[in-house]
Amino acid sequence: MSKRRPYIRPMDGWWKKNPFFIEYVIHESTAFFVLAYALTLLVGLVRLGQGETAWSAWLASLKTPLAIVFHVCLLAGAVYHAFSWFKLMPVTLPPVRIGGRKLRADEIVTGGFVAAVAGAAFIYLLVWGLA
């Protein structure tokens, strides 16, 4: 009779055992911030569709200290999302070639950060154009 009895270790608390996984769980949880912002915008859109009174009430609610603090938290989450998103790009993108040469990981990350700044500038100018 076989004396084998392979022992399977539980996965409880796996993410606490390694700093790498703690960072992973933090950057994954930025999704809650993105979700919260999407739902905030969705509520705003619904209020806009209900007419001027509803929209003004929504705008006024954004001015409460609680709403400001909420958005400062969202901003922190979104910045960390952007940072970790581009930091991971050397792993998530297929090799990027420019002029026959494969870009190094740090060049891809830098390119991502430049794109993030350009994206922010684009949104800033877009809103200025509308204002």
């Binding site: 390694n18 790498f20 996984f21 992973y24 994954e28 991971l88 792993v91 998530t92």
Partner: peptide, 19 residues
């Protein structure tokens, strides 16, 4: 895969399985 990418970090031969 959820792209934790720790696999590529620990690979002793720098294979980069995550990529």
């Amino acid at each position: 895969c959820s792209a934790a990418a720790y696999c590529s970090e620990v690979c002793p031969k720098h294979v980069d399985p995550a990529n």
